[in-house]
Write a protein that binds this DNA or RNA. Structure first.
Lengths: 187, 187
DNA sequence: GAGTCTTTGTAGCGGTCGCTACATTTCTAC
DNA sequence: GTAGAAATGTAGCGACCGCTACAAAGACTC
């Protein structure tokens, strides 16, 4: 017999894939259950209520995203700002990461309206992003590195938000110019 | 007797205020009708259906936002990049404009999921933003000015998206550093 | 004032929502 | 084998959703 935790974990995988593919707009309990290959009755047997389902799934997705970041640039390796921006910019616009960035935009937008549990989740993810960028930047001065990490996140998130508009030209042009600025001797 | 167009315009004002205050999450026909001081029955008498209500209200809000931008920096006046970023950054984080930026984040996030009619609306707003920035930047070279406008929009939108997180420190720090970079001789 | 058109209230349709009561089946422990 | 626990199906609750049929009330025309 299959362990309940194992079953629940498998369900989480399918739920994460569904949420990444379809966003937060199609997350009725019945939708999620169908995506997980089970019934709404069973989904609410595995989880206490819909809020727990969503929280758990988003936490798993956030962990996946953090893992992808680490894979793209392993811990210990540090890059100058322009190089890091280029690396992360390319990655964030890749087909593999686009669903993550779109979902992140949705979560962040909902956090602005203080819809539980999105505010807390968004806070954690944003802090993780900044800490990651801080740990990958080859800048000696702590304050400068922290500020640069913030700028990286602002630029990448802005570009992600604007990626669907105008064929992505605003996002691309903006990031490209920022890369130039960072590449100059003023960075 | 009150003209139907007049009545409908008054309703639109109240609807715009409600959407700005509560976002796109509380936009059931009954919610909107209550906010407008009428009944759902009447709301769907003034408008064909809910989609038309939302489109009209968002169009009005977008027009208001464009007007606010023009008021902040009248047409004909041009600023160097660092000054424009500072001006717009302060404005976007002001109490008066925060509802607009939060709503814009919501619309942009929904546009990423291609939810009609948000994709078209977001496209128009984003293009308007970029054109506005382009027309207010004191940069001679056309390509450079266009790219700088894109960077302005990317940065401001990224900061707006991140404003609710971590007390707004990421947004503030990121914009501050970008301002420094633009203020340098590399801009 | 009769007839007509516009405006508004009442009531409800068919649908989805999150969630649950209840019964049934399937497994486990002794 | 049997008692109990765990897992799962069936059915539906009450709330909300967008929307509409129907009729009453008001306003305008002649």
């Amino acid at each position: 017999m299959i362990d309940r935790e194992t079953r629940r974990s498998e369900v989480e995988d399918k739920l994460a894939a569904h949420v990444l593919a379809h966003g937060l707009g199609r997350t009725s309990v019945r939708d999620l259950a169908a995506a997980a290959g089970t019934s709404d009755r069973m989904l609410l047997y595995y989880f206490a209520d819909k809020a727990e389902v969503v929280s758990v799934v988003l936490a798993r997705i956030a962990a996946d995203m953090a893992q992808a970041l680490d894979a793209a640039l392993p811990e210990g390796e540090r890059l100058p700002p322009a190089d890091l921006l280029a690396r992360v910019g390319v990655m964030a616009s890749s087909a593999a990461m686009r669903p993550y960035m779109e979902l992140w935009s949705e979560i962040a937008a909902k956090a602005g309206r203080e819809e539980a549990p999105f505010a807390a989740i968004a806070d954690a993810i944003a802090a993780g992003f900044r800490a990651w960028a801080d740990s990958r930047l080859a800048i000696a001065d702590d304050a400068r590195r922290s500020a640069m990490a913030a700028l990286m996140i602002v630029a990448i998130d802005g570009a992600a938000l604007l990626a669907p508009m105008a064929g992505g030209t605003i996002a691309r042009d903006g990031l490209a110019l920022l890369g130039e600025l960072l590449d100059g001797h003023c960075s």
